[in-house]
């Protein structure tokens, strides 16, 4: 867990450096401290889906690294994100990874305020095709509670952190809602909740 944390900080720092931003080690260490503490309290006191999921996420991010020796090649699916400006981006997502994490690994602007702990609705995505939506497992009460509050909720809305890549989802299109743009879902007209 600690190592995975460190590796994430490392990856994050490399990413930031590549973008030409200068950050000090201390600031990176600082920003990641609250999240590790949070994980600890959650897993100890209140094991929620979110916490389990996040552990899994951290674990998988270590094993799925391209430099990992001896790991089998992972199955990937194609996912298209339609961003706030309406631009499409096709990415490959390893099976088992959440759409929130996949978006972040590919520099797609999808918010994740609560870092996949099911306490916000900022990673709200709209499944652009009813057929794909029906391939997903039904949202839990907890996810529905958050979707209640999602901006621009539609009949095919889900939280990106709860949609996990699986082979049947190959080719799925996900739209990121925006305050300044309207769009239609195939076969569905978005309506106010």
């Amino acid at each position: 867990m600690f190592i995975s944390k460190l590796s994430r900080v490392g990856v994050w720092m490399v990413k930031e450096l590549c973008r030409g931003k200068s950050r000090t080690l201390t600031s990176a260490g600082y920003t990641h401290r609250p999240s590790s503490h949070y994980l600890q309290t959650l897993s100890e006191a209140k094991v929620s889906r979110g916490a389990i999921f996040q552990k899994h996420r951290l674990f998988s991010s270590v094993n799925s690294g391209p430099s990992e020796e001896g790991s089998e090649p992972e199955e990937e699916i194609s996912v298209t994100f339609v961003d706030k400006d309406g631009d499409e981006k096709l990415i490959k997502v390893p099976v088992g990874m959440s759409m929130l994490e996949a978006a972040h690994e590919n520099d797609i602007e999808l918010e994740g305020a609560c870092e996949a702990s099911l306490a916000c609705s900022t990673c709200h995505v709209i499944v652009m095709d009813m057929e794909y939506y029906n391939k997903l497992e039904d949202p839990t009460d907890e996810e529905n509670d958050m979707l209640d509050l999602a901006f621009g909720l539609t009949e095919t809305s889900r939280l990106g952190c709860q949609v996990i890549a699986k082979p049947e989802l190959d080719g799925v299109q996900l739209a990121i809602p925006s305050a300044t743009r309207n769009f239609a879902v195939d076969g569905y007209v978005p309506k106010p909740h």
Partner: peptide, 15 residues
């Protein structure tokens, strides 16, 4: 506590 996780993001903005 899970609702407060957003301060991680805000701290990155402040820095």
């Amino acid at each position: 506590p899970e609702t407060k996780v957003v301060v991680n993001q805000f701290s990155r903005v402040a820095q």
